[in-house]
Nucleic acid binder design. Structure first.
Lengths: 208, 208
DNA sequence: CATAAACTGTACCGATCGGTTTATACTCCG
DNA sequence: CGGAGTATAAACCGATCGGTACAGTTTATG
């Protein structure tokens, strides 16, 4: 556990290089030679830090998950009405989700979920789990302010439904069309549709 | 193209065996020996039908996609109000989506999307694309009957938002928790939440 | 400078895998 | 009967990969 987090200059260097290689090629196709070369480090050094390929892979995934969690938690919104808040959160989250690293992490983790169930669960908690919590907190504030009413389904369910709408089509297209990058306008459209729908369902009439 | 579809007894046998092996292990981890053994066929026969591992893989994915499309198109609903229709479609689709084969197909296709962009696009069109079309048709009927009003965003956008809500959390949990199978009650809850939210947003008041 | 530790580059081992070849048997058709 | 075509099991080839061994070089320390 203490060794999964790089405490060393070289360890961190290896971790970053391994992140690149694993995220680009996946677990099987990534070779230790590629990682060693990308890190500018000899094979012996690599194996002195991480005894097996699987251990290095686990460290990489946990590292990337923690980075992702941090970026989700750092999402800040300028105060305003709930529509503006949702638009801002939605745009930031969707942009993050459609970034190369997020998509690659998703691909890799899902691909090896059977082999590393522990990492898959960590990914779920780090990504969607954290986002649900963050969003639920904002929804609660809006509910207390009387801007929305989600009593019918609860805060968390409302949050996951919103992120579901947000993510749904966008992530699917990004995953299955790896050569094309979503435009900013396209992202805005997805966010707008999700926010509009959510507020029509749970926003108070004078806001929607 | 004409050879990607099995016209032969043995070809079909190989295709089915290869489906099992590829869906379970992914492209890299699946070996031609495993496929040959599962098909009860010699290596020479296998290579006489599909010249390379990649060709066999492509045939498998296309085959599975076409099966998936057929199953989506065959979703039939007993006539009734839009809420009942959405509940029924939602339940059927979500059950299909959370089945072992669907999840495995998703995992495999997404994992190799960079290597086989063509297959990834085929998957998108076969799965979510078809579902959107089917659902949009039902929504159109409901709109003509005055049960819903989706003029604000359009039929297709409404359909993708609904499937997004439906799929969102459910598929994510299934993908990252491979050892646990979603219960029927859990599926019902997801469907109910999505339908409720959708109708609160776009259903006419006397129905919601 | 001396010593120990760590690093490097490379060669190597054993295993696996995609794909080919071979030697043999079965089946159909004239 | 006989030959063409196709099936099979099994050995085999070349390449790749995870991991180890090792001889020599750098670096930190006292």
């Amino acid at each position: 556990m203490s060794q999964t987090i790089a405490t060393d200059d070289k360890s961190l260097c290896v971790l970053k290089a391994a992140s690149q290689v694993f995220l680009e090629h996946g677990f099987n196709a990534a070779t230790t030679d590629m990682i060693q070369q990308a890190a500018g480090v000899s094979k012996a050094t690599l194996y002195s830090r991480y005894p097996k390929k699987e251990a290095l892979f686990a460290a990489v995934i946990e590292y990337q998950c923690s980075r992702f969690t941090r970026r989700v938690q750092q999402i800040e919104v300028t105060p305003g009405n709930i529509r503006k808040v949702l638009l801002e959160i939605g745009h930031t989250y969707l942009s993050l989700l459609l970034s190369y690293e997020s998509l690659a992490l998703f691909r890799v983790v899902v691909a090896v979920a059977d082999k590393f169930p522990h990492l898959a669960r960590t990914f779920y908690t780090s990504g969607p789990g954290t986002m649900t919590k963050v969003l639920a907190a904002h929804l609660e504030k809006a509910a207390n302010a009387g801007e929305i009413d989600v009593q019918v389904i609860g805060l968390e369910a409302a949050a996951t439904l919103f992120t579901g709408m947000l993510r749904g089509e966008a992530q699917l297209i990004a995953l299955t069309h790896p050569e094309s990058q979503a435009s900013e306008a396209q992202i805005d459209q997805w966010v707008n549709q999700a926010v509009t729908t959510f507020l029509r369902a749970y926003g108070n009439a004078d806001i929607a």
